[in-house]
Amino acid sequence: MKLLLVLIAAVVLTVVLGQTAWQILAQPTPVDLRELVAEAMPDSGVAHPITAVLLNFRSYDTLLEIGVLVVAGMAGLSMRAVAPLEAPAMRTSDTLLQALLRWFVPFLLVLSAYLLWAGSDRSGGAFQAGAVLGATGVLLRLGGVPLDFLRPGLMLRLGLVLGFAVFLLVAVMGAIRGDMFLAYPQEWAGLLIVVIEAALTLSIAMVLVGLFAVAPAQATERDWPSREGKR
């Protein structure tokens, strides 16, 4: 019964959504932001339009979005403080993996730095760079490297909010100068965006690795009887 209802609902959604989307696609939009973006590009401080939209025109979205990321990281950490659930069994000591890591980690670090730098004039940017850096951290973790800064201490929390804090400071500087919140002085815009992006890269990676480290390890069938007894 539930299966039937859900299937009907899903089919109705697909059909109606498809029909509406098709109609919308057939009509031109009354506003075209492409022109506005192109006009404002020289004042944005960067050469790539997506980076300009993300970190200048619609920077408030990005600020709040990093807030969302920090909240997720924080909520994960708040779990950890109750009972450290790290399982050493998760870490392998596979020699092949260790050998690969020696090749991969420097390469991934360089790739991450490149993505960050590339963001100003082509595809790339803080998010891509942060994701690669985060993946590097996960790889290191899996490879048995302890990464001490992931202990729930001040360092981890500092890393978590660094990007957000830098962004927020830049945002409020605009207001203190008597301009709008989040407004950059035009000649500094490019530099400020690079600084924000670098700090964001670090924090994004930190949130990802932190959350990975926080998630409790796989419990096996053997764990159950003993844990029931403990409670």
């Binding site: 408030y60 997720a72 708040s78 109750v82």
Partner: peptide
Amino acid sequence: LFNLYVGLELISLAAVGLVALGG
């Protein structure tokens, strides 16, 4: 409209974190 979406998600995740506090 999109800013409302991000704001809404900030509220939701913070609220979920507050409910889960303690775990």
